[in-house]
């Protein structure tokens, strides 16, 4: 067993034991913090497919996070007000069913990622970063100027959406749902990295010319990776909106894109559990330092600087040594 596998097992155990402790100790706020970390980790796991495996530095993943969030917000707000989303040519009603909301979030963010990817993946480097950023900002300003769903003020949802057989208002049960989704997605990502698709995508990141020479189009690989990546981040957005029972344009902001990227870099780019460690550390710092100062991001920036300068493999790279993938 590699040190990284051992580290991952420890991390997974913590994700189970910490909320259990909080539940037994009757600390619902701690469970909520853990839920937030798990959801943000999921957003990072999505980005890690594009960034880690594909080498695509997307500064617009908030677009998918926001689309997932608004998919939840729009569906739930219509269910809450008993008003249909669309009456003609066919009836579309809102819903409070989490599985339906997740499905809509995954499909809509996936379609958006496909469309954005088709246009942005023809560029590389700094141009790709700028185009993805521009798409994110377009959606940010669109959400601000969309009064039907709260505009700048955002859209509150008064009830938690439902999952068959569970009381989603109970923090530990909602945490269980989010944790189960993260575990399933991590398992999928572990398989993906070793699959023919992962092999080719990883090679395309290192030497696109070689991949083309063996008859595989790097563009198509990257487009598929970007789309899958957007779908996972969109699902995280829907869960995040459900956690807060609130969606706002902030979910689309470039700061959100930056934060998702920070999770990945803090934990370790291309490491399976990199975004999980990064998001957990982010929430921990926010909780510990946020009480001391409103400007706690200064300390986060300092930590990020130290990691980028002295620990290129992120936290996991520091503990587990250099991995097979790039650090």
């Amino acid at each position: 067993m590699t040190r990284e596998s051992l580290f991952n097992i420890v991390m997974m155990s913590l994700l189970i034991l910490f909320p259990l402790w909080a539940w037994i100790a009757d600390e619902p706020f701690m469970i909520t913090l853990a839920t937030k970390a798990v959801i943000l980790a999921l957003a990072g796991v999505g980005l890690n497919i594009a960034l880690g495996l594909g080498g695509l530095v997307s500064l617009g993943h908030a677009a998918f996070f926001g689309i997932g969030g608004y998919a939840m917000g729009i569906l739930a707000s219509h269910a809450q007000s008993y008003s249909p989303i669309l009456e003609s040519p066919f009836l579309i009603e809102g819903t409070k069913s989490m599985p339906v909301i997740w499905l809509v979030a995954i499909i809509s963010s996936g379609l958006a990622a496909l469309a954005i990817g088709v246009l942005s993946l023809r560029t590389t480097g700094v141009y790709f970063i700028m185009i993805t950023l521009a798409f994110g900002q377009m959606l940010f300003f669109f959400s601000i100027s969309w009064p039907a769903y709260g505009g700048e003020d955002g859209l509150p949802i008064y009830v938690r959406n439902g999952f068959p057989g569970l009381n989603t208002l109970d923090p530990i049960q909602f945490y269980g749902i989010c944790f189960a989704i993260l575990a399933v997605v991590l398992f999928f990502c572990a398989r993906l990295a070793k699959s023919p698709f992962g092999l080719a995508l990883n090679a395309a990141r290192q030497t696109a010319e070689r991949v083309e020479t063996v008859g595989i189009s790097p563009y198509r690989l990257r487009l598929a990776a970007f789309t899958i990546s957007g779908m996972i981040t969109g699902l995280a957005g829907a869960l995040f909106a459900d956690l807060n029972r609130f969606v706002s344009p902030t979910m689309f902001s470039w700061q959100t894109s930056g934060e998702i990227m920070v999770f990945v870099i803090l934990g370790g780019v291309a490491r399976l559990f990199g975004p999980v460690v990064g998001a957990a550390l982010f929430i921990l710092l926010e909780h510990l330092l946020g009480g001391l100062s409103d400007y706690w991001h200064i300390y986060l920036g300092l930590l990020l600087l130290l990691i980028v300068l002295f620990a290129r493999g992120g936290v996991i790279g520091t503990f587990a040594g250099k991995g097979a993938n790039h650090d």
Partner: peptide, 17 residues
């Protein structure tokens, strides 16, 4: 990777290459 380009589709996401 070469064998993959020559044969099966690279769009397989589950089974280890």
């Amino acid at each position: 990777l070469g064998a993959l380009g020559a044969g099966a589709s690279p769009f397989q996401f589950w089974r280890a290459a």
